[in-house]
Amino acid sequence: MSQRIDSLQPGPDLREGNNEYWQTLLERIPYARHLGLQAQQDSSGVWVHLPYQKSLIGNFMLPALHGGVLGALIEITARIAAHGKGAQASYPRILDSNINYLRSAQARSTFASAEVVRQGRRTSLVQVNCWQRERSVLIASGRVQLLLATTAGNQ
């Protein structure tokens, strides 16, 4: 598909290490589209932006974002990061995720960066950090274990 687009016009460059590549991966996920997730790439790796929406609030008293939305952000970020490394046709399957909530998530834009801790033949372990105002002030961090899609196909 990318070849055809390339031949017509400059079009999106779908190589890994490029914003459009990550954005294309995200946009294949209906739930990521629903949350309005946007992928970016910088020298430190891929990161995903979750724009603030009123519907993401879980605690109206503080107000704070719903912890489940942060969980979803972390899992989806891990999923595209593991997918990018493996470059398979289908997404890796998430086996488990372990998320620590470090600070209250305020009603504002949230970012998540992914680091592949270990890329094995069949599984991948991805560390994801979330922040809001300052990258050094983490609001949540998680570790996600994924089963990579093999040619035999799993489920």
């Binding site: 294949r28 996920i29 209906p30 739930y31 589209r33 489940g68 979803a72 952000l73 899992e75 997404y91």
Partner: peptide
């Protein structure tokens, strides 16, 4: 339909299960 994990699949995104578990646990 917006909870799906991949276009063309019927699988629900794990993030949705995560949110459900978080709400029920709370």
């Amino acid at each position: 339909s917006w909870m799906i994990a991949d276009d063309g699949a019927k699988e629900i995104c794990t993030g949705v299960l995560y949110s459900l578990a978080d709400s029920a646990s709370g």
